[in-house]
Design a protein around this nucleic acid. Sequence first.
DNA 1: AAGGGACGCAACCGCCTCCTA
DNA 2: ATAGGAGGCGGTTGCGTCCCT
Length: 333
Amino acid sequence: MNQQQVKVSKNNKQVNNCEDDDDSSDLRRGPWTVDEDFTLINYIAHHGEGRWNSLARFAGLKRTGKSCRLRWLNYLRPDVRRGNITLEEQLLILELHSRWGNRWSKIAQHLPGRTDNEIKNYWRTRVQKHAKQLKCDVNSKQFKDTMRYLWMPRLVERIQASATTDDGAPPAVASSPSSAMNTACYSAAMAAGDHRRQFMLMPQYYATTTTTHNNSMIAQENSSTVASSESFGSLSSELTAEANYANYHRVINGADHQQIDSSTTSYDWQNCAVGNNGNSDQLGMGFADDRRSNEQWMMMTDDVVDNGGSSDQDNNLWNVDDVWFLQQFSSCF
DNA sequence: AAGGGACGCAACCGCCTCCTA
DNA sequence: ATAGGAGGCGGTTGCGTCCCT
């Protein structure tokens, strides 16, 4: 590959040029100039997209068709959204990536205005960075579990929180202000029942929840999944696990008719650790199976949960405590 | 203030698939 | 049926900017 590239100053003024190494014509490479952008926009406005090679020729652009296509799709298209990836978009990216892997264009189809390139860059710069921080491979089960059980629920929570502050209206289910991970804390009266501790419950992510964003698209592929932004509303600390579970279903289904009659329904809770290495108790971690619904809940006592409030200033999902905690958490698998 | 490392992103590369003649 | 061109896609690179020392 010819490493010599068009050098463009900050204001897009070209200061150097070179020739394409596999083409005797003077095809340009490197950053696009304002003039080139204008030419491409103008041409497409009059003639439309498609046939990129001939488009490049007819428009008088000394660029390959591929280059024109990329510039248009990733940058010049009027419906391209620019700016920070929102929390909702982050959540959707994580969800869709967990399902499809690096199918960037497919993922991008579900994020209007975002390009595959942008999503790919987001994944590489943010997500992979966190995997590196956790000293694990981004494709490892360990990291995927971390995303599913911690990152994504936290995103849901933060989306809820920002919705509350944005429009001033309280969420449909008031959440406890005392915990940053106030998704489903309550005093568990677990089947083991030998002590009462404060737990945060997180269901297996896909068992019962989806996102608020583009949920119609998700529903197409997972019609049995109930889309709700309220999935992690706090549950009453006064209720039994069974009642809380019933409430949970009521919450996520958003209607009373879904309420489970806890008086006639028994749940086979197991306050057991699954796959732990024996120190989950020290970590305040455990798993509970609801065998009736085949849902599994991960539990963490609130002393291992960040209680600092969800006051992150930006879209950075992690703080030092998170990383520390995740490193501990990761060692359990 | 300056230098250097880290980061983010636009653009390119190469492979693969699809389309058309 | 097939070959060549065009387009699509995921991976990679290089450069500008930011931030820290």
